[in-house]
Amino acid sequence: MDALDVLWRLLAVLLAFLVLPLLVGQAEHKAMAHMQGRVGPMYAGGFHGWAQLVADGVKFAQKEDIVPSGADRRVFQLAPAVALLPYLVVLIVIPVGDGDMVGQVVDAGVFFVLAVMGVGVLGSLMGGWASANKFSLLGGLRTAAQLMAYELPMLLAAASVAMAAGTLSLPGILDAWQWWWLPWQIVGGLVFFTAGLAELQRPPFDAPVADSEIIFGAYTEYTGLRFALFLLAEYAGIVVLSALTAVLFLGGWHGPFADTLGWVWTLLKTAVLAFVVIWLRVSYPRLREDQIQRVAWTVLVPLALFQIALTGVVKVVIQ
């Protein structure tokens, strides 16, 4: 792997990082609008408002960058970067196609992904504390509580797949993947996806940013580009979560004509899952804080443990 190759891969990952979240955001604008009987943005860019998020970005860039006078300046300014960068790093290890179509093969890929995604939440905590605002603090508290509750089922569900494949590497898991893993790991997949939603603070698990209760949680005091970075982190998180679920539980590039069209399958599965994320946001009301905790500890953790037991039993039986 020479320097040029590395450069190309990093460029491709960066491009995906810059484009895919915007696509998801635009899809959310339009899909959510139509699900609510509206049409969404129609003007920016001419055709059905395709450039709405570009326009939003320009608007955010023009806004004044305000740091509250009572805030902890350094931490406040650092928080958006801490929230956003982990998702960029995670994208490097997600395999898009068979063989070489991955930014970098990491031996303990599953652990790497989950570890780095957990770091991203630190950004919300830093922002929540450093804003010197009670709503931000409440948002930060809820973020931390939610993260601690949902990290465990997510990890257990991912561990189930790793057990089934006998490896922690994402391309390795895909190489071992068979179609019948789909029903076998379906419970784990559901747990993983749900816990991921909660970790991203997406509705219906958006109590940490509940705008009708605590303004906008940890992001209350943010404006301009820094706020845009937090938003971008949320959508990058959707991309990463959808891609990870597709890779771990839906077989990634597996599908008809996988040897030539593998990457299309990965992108397609990711897109469908991203649509489901949007769909869930439109369909369900926000869970209360205690309901969120109850779902994690009394539903997801037992389900994930059951999945691990099932995986172990089947694994032993087929050997």
Binding site: L114, A115, G118, L122, L147
Partner: peptide, 11 residues
């Protein structure tokens, strides 16, 4: 990273 940065420090 997962245990210490992701969980212990968050705690």
């Amino acid at each position: 990273v997962l245990i210490y940065v992701g969980s212990v420090v968050v705690l």
